[in-house]
Simulated assay, not measured.
Amino acid sequence: MNQEITVTETPAQPVDQFPHFTVLLSSTRRGARLARLLTEAQLRHWGLPTETASQLVAELAANAATHGRVPGRDFRLMLYVIGGTLRIEVTDTRGDRLPVLQHPEGTAESGRGLLLVDALADRWGVAEDRFPRKTVWAELCFSRPEPAPTGPSAGGGLLVKDLGEKEPDQAPPFPPVGQHRGAAHSGG
């Protein structure tokens, strides 16, 4: 069975626009794997680190394909960047099955995915959408590389801003959406 994949990306944007990427994928293991691969490619295109974000997408997409699967319905992956925050959203069509952070026994073969999301994401949560949908989201804070100054005093290379700095026109991090399930932490 062939399925058409729709990818929407805003082309080269002015500095005041927010980069975003969205795609509908089949609720299968193949769709979950493709979500991770597309995330890696998109983040490389944006010049952002890929490892942590692709692990988060792998977990969220696998959950959507496993626990949020309704035959014949796709899940949506959305990535966008505002300021120094990457927001990952995975929307599926099983709004009746909200994810719950659990601590499985040591011999359990599954049930650790949200523990990984909780450990890797700076913030994460669940937003109940129009029935029957739900969106599980995760945020990563990062320091975006800026072009080096040009001219005779330029030192070359890229400058990286400290996360503590905030430009006056920089958008704030996203507010919590829906029910917040994960505890914020300073790691990432």
Rank of each mutant, 00 (worst) to 15 (best):
A35I: 07
R36H: 11
R36E: 12
R36N: 08
E40V: 15
A41C: 03
Q42H: 05
L43C: 02
R44F: 01
W46G: 04
W46R: 03
G47S: 01
G47I: 13
L48T: 10
L48W: 01
P49N: 06
E51K: 09
T52A: 11
S54R: 05
S54W: 01
L56N: 04
L56Y: 01
A58S: 15
L60T: 09
A61G: 11
A62F: 00
N63H: 04
N63C: 10
T66C: 10
T66L: 14
H67K: 13
G68Q: 12
R69A: 13
V70P: 00
V70E: 15
P71Q: 13
P71L: 13
P71M: 13
R73C: 11
R73F: 14
R73Y: 14
D74L: 12
D74A: 13
F75W: 10
F75M: 11
L77S: 05
L77D: 02
V81K: 03
I82P: 00
I82H: 09
G83Q: 07
G83Y: 02
G84M: 05
G84F: 08
G84W: 04
G84S: 09
T85L: 05
T85Q: 13
T85A: 06
L86S: 02
R87Q: 08
I88H: 05
I88N: 02
I88C: 01
E89G: 05
V90W: 03
T91K: 10
T91V: 05
D92G: 06
R94H: 06
R94Q: 12
R94L: 11
R94E: 06
L98A: 14
V100A: 12
V100I: 15
V100F: 00
Q102H: 03
Q102M: 10
Q102K: 12
H103L: 11
P104K: 08
P104C: 05
E105N: 12
T107R: 06
T107P: 10
T107L: 04
E109L: 09
E109C: 05
S110N: 09
S110D: 06
R112S: 10
G113Q: 05
G113L: 07
L114N: 04
L114F: 04
L115A: 12
L115M: 13
L116M: 14
L116V: 15
L120H: 07
L120I: 14
A121N: 02
R123W: 04
W124P: 11
W124T: 15
G125H: 04
E128V: 15
D129T: 15
R130G: 11
P132L: 07
R133V: 10
T135A: 08
T135L: 08
V136D: 02
V136F: 03
V136G: 01
W137Y: 14
A138R: 06
A138C: 07
E139D: 12
E139W: 06
E139F: 08
L140E: 03
L140K: 07
L140F: 09
C141P: 07
F142C: 04
S143T: 14
S143M: 08
P147G: 03
P147W: 00
A148T: 15
A148Y: 00
P149M: 00
T150Y: 01
G155V: 15
G156H: 03
G157I: 06
G157V: 10
L158H: 00
V160N: 08
L163C: 13
L163N: 08
G164R: 14
K166L: 11
E167M: 06
D169G: 04
Q170H: 04
A171Y: 04
A171T: 07
P172I: 09
P173E: 04
P173H: 12
P173S: 04
F174N: 08
F174M: 09
F174V: 11
